[in-house]
Amino acid sequence: MPVTILIPTALRAHTRQQSAVTVDGRTVQEALDRLVADYPDLKPHLVAESGKIRSFINVFVNEDDIRQKGDMKAPVKNGDEISIVPSIAGGAEAVSKDKVMDLLSTCYDPEIPVNIVDLGLIYEVNISPLPDQPEKSKVHVKMSLTAPGCPEAPKMQAETEAKVSAMDGVGAAQVEIVWEPQWTPDRMSDAARLELGMA
């Protein structure tokens, strides 16, 4: 799957001055292996003798530190952006998608006894840095509801947004209700089906 790797200025001499390189890969490991295969001069700058990424380097997939997502095995999908940043970034307190999903799985549609994550209502979670609050991130959630025009929509949106806003490390949260694509029951997890007697 094609993913884009953003190249720091300091390394562009080794990528013929390209600021971004597109490679194929299913995991961060595969994408970076492809990168150093295509541009072998990069290798000593990125990979230690042990074969691992050098310890001071942080790798992000769309602003998420891969150390919170399975490290080098972190999956990447079509259109993802991988950035490589020296670890003077620290990045210790980043909010991860997993943490946001954990929190969202404590939220319920008032009429259904299954949380909104297992129901498959969460379409997208994007985490980006807040330029004016370096310690905090902005979280943007796209979710849907089981039926268009659901009267509970504004209330659920507000409640979810308030919960995400209150997370550690979150400076701003936005929950957007979307109706496209329309939710269908096959988005539910097995746990949800079991709970609702649909398995």
Binding site: P86, A89, G90, G91, A92
Partner: peptide, 19 residues
């Protein structure tokens, strides 16, 4: 640069600098 250590960011904020 946005990738300086978090400790430095905290110190600058504590001293009231606009960053």
């Amino acid at each position: 640069p946005a990738n300086i250590s978090p400790e430095r960011k905290h110190i600058l904020a504590a001293l009231g600098a606009e960053v």
